[in-house]
Design a protein around this nucleic acid. Structure first.
Lengths: 335, 335
DNA sequence: GTGAAAGCGCTAACAA
DNA sequence: TTGTTAGCGCTTTCAC
């Protein structure tokens, strides 16, 4: 293994001081063009690259952010991860990706890791159960931006979607088309997305004067498996005439099950899902779905984070900002 | 913003030296149980967390790895990212995710970033065009493991799939079922996966004594858009009777186009794709596809990397190891 | 068992 | 315009 170069050796080779090399490296002014070239030549010849670890220690900034999402495997979160990374790249930041799996313990562990590594900021789609730790990070100077979900008792920047209204619109559409016994596969009530989308389901029923029935509502955990399982359970209610699923992953699970069971959409059953990944347009008929601006969700969160990171440290923090993006129903052939 | 604690303040509060705190932090022996508890109490009370940046500088190890893939949005690469992260977590490493977008320049930039940040190792699905830089990293002590694709002229650890054989099997299946004018949407010839899967297509034709025709072969760049575009082009050959697409993303693009054009599978046209993401089982009919052990591809690469990282630094490097995993054809209803 | 102190590689006063 | 030098926060000899 080659000995790794450091700034001192570059300085010696170029016949200047480390300070000068550092100035060249950081494109600081007050370096004579001549010396600059001399230094650059050595750097080029030796393939020297600054040690960012040392630099970060000295500067007390790491130029990196962490992102904690439930699962990159989900088309929803992978788009968010991509959006965040795109913005990070523009700002010359690197991104540490963490799959929290919607597990509070795993989430907490990752928060610790990110803290220890002194990331400058964190974007998180939170489980909601680590408010204390998140507050600790915030108070020790790490910027935090919540995405997709809130944490009760936390005030900080956030980007959400109009879950309740969009969900109501979806269910109202079903009701309008004459469906009356609409199964709901909801997320956990404790997550804001779980609660609000269910509330929207209820809102629509109220508007149409149809009393919702307990037996048509099931709670999953947003995972593909729970979508399958709860779809199977709902199918036991033989008078069910439509299915509304509250997120991408559960919808994929539920749809797969329906297909296996030979349920024909929309003849046997209407189908609507919250979120609209690519595959909804590949199947027949194409699926009616609530389309969220997923990429914007991610890029907006990232931009908000960077805006905050750019505020001078001694600047009196402005109020937190809560952004709400609009999701809307896309009517296709499954209703 | 709270002042951020450091080890000295913890030491003072506990009435010991920084060395002792460090020993406790790192669970080193030779600390009296009593002092240990005293220190832990302070740590707990103050929420102190080591500064990993300083630790990394001192230890000359960052406990982090980088992964460069084409695009997390692809079901293929997101599974790999997840697999790598799972293994990294087990080893208490963090993972920096980079979407190289199959662009040599972007890839190079990320390689530089990872180098500057002194990641301990890199897993990369390479474009093939930065052999020089990859060698530089290798020679400066960063472990590298290639995944899915090779780089000509580089010897290092790698995990591949039996592209040529699996591809041949897929096309042979088509031929066996009587298809004779099989369109191929290939990847770029310069990527190993592009070249080898095309070679498999040719092999199968040779085995069946059918001369392959130029007009049925098109080269995409592995992206969804290029799949669409080339499918449209191939559809101009009106006697085409089957389509074989060489990766996930192009297949999704091509399939979408076929659907839009009202092409009925398999009545109008047979369809086979290399790689087998979830959605192949959601559409009707289910798609015949070459199933790769994608998760294993990622976890194997990660394990190989960690094995290498655990080798003592003065240890004479063992030979590089090339792992080949088996992909196999899954026959479903699209042929 | 514990502490003092050197030093990882860099940046940023401050001096010249 | 350039150099000297003091740390950033930690780990790790080496002494005691």
């Amino acid at each position: 293994m080659n000995k790794r170069l450091n700034i001192a050796e570059v300085a010696k080779a170029a016949g200047v001081s480390t300070a000068t090399v550092s100035r060249v490296l950081n494109e600081k002014p007050f370096v004579r063009e001549n010396t600059r070239r001399k230094v650059l030549r050595v750097i080029d010849k030796t393939n020297y690259r600054v040690n960012a670890v040392a630099r970060n220690l000295r500067r007390k900034k790491t130029h990196s952010i962490g992102i904690i999402i439930s699962n990159v495997l989900s088309p929803f979160y992978s788009v968010i991860a991509k959006a965040v990374e795109d913005v990070a790249l523009c700002n010359n930041f690197s991104m540490v990706l963490c799959n929290g799996g919607d597990k509070p313990k795993k989430e907490r562990r990752y928060l610790q890791v990110l803290f220890e590594n002194r990331v400058d900021g964190i974007i998180i789609s939170p489980t909601g159960e680590n408010a204390d730790y998140l507050k600790l990070l915030l108070s020790s100077g790490i910027a935090v931006c919540l995405i997709d979900r809130k944490v009760s008792g936390m005030v900080c920047d956030s980007v959400m979607v109009n879950n309740r209204e969009a969900s109501k619109e979806a269910v109202a559409h079903l009701l309008e088309r004459g469906y009356r016994r609409i199964g709901l596969i909801s997320g956990p009530k404790e997550r804001t997305t779980g609660y609000l989308r269910m509330a929207g389901y209820l809102d629509a029923h109220k508007e149409y004067g149809i009393p919702p029935q307990e037996r048509f509502i099931r709670y999953g955990d947003f995972s593909l498996e729970s979508g399958r399982k709860n779809a199977a359970l709902l199918l036991c209610e033989s008078d069910l005439d439509a299915l509304y699923v509250a997120n991408t992953d559960m919808a994929m699970g539920a749809y797969g099950l329906l297909k296996e069971r030979g349920v024909v959409i929309p003849d046997d059953m209407g189908f609507v899902m919250f979120d609209d990944p690519d595959w909804t347009r590949l199947v027949t008929p194409k699926l009616t779905a609530v389309s969220q601006p997923v990429y914007e969700l991610g890029s907006t969160a990232a931009k908000m984070l960077f805006r905050r990171l750019q505020m001078p440290p001694d600047y009196v923090k402005t109020d937190t900002v809560q952004t709400v993006l609009n999701a809307k129903l896309v009517r296709r052939g499954s209703v």
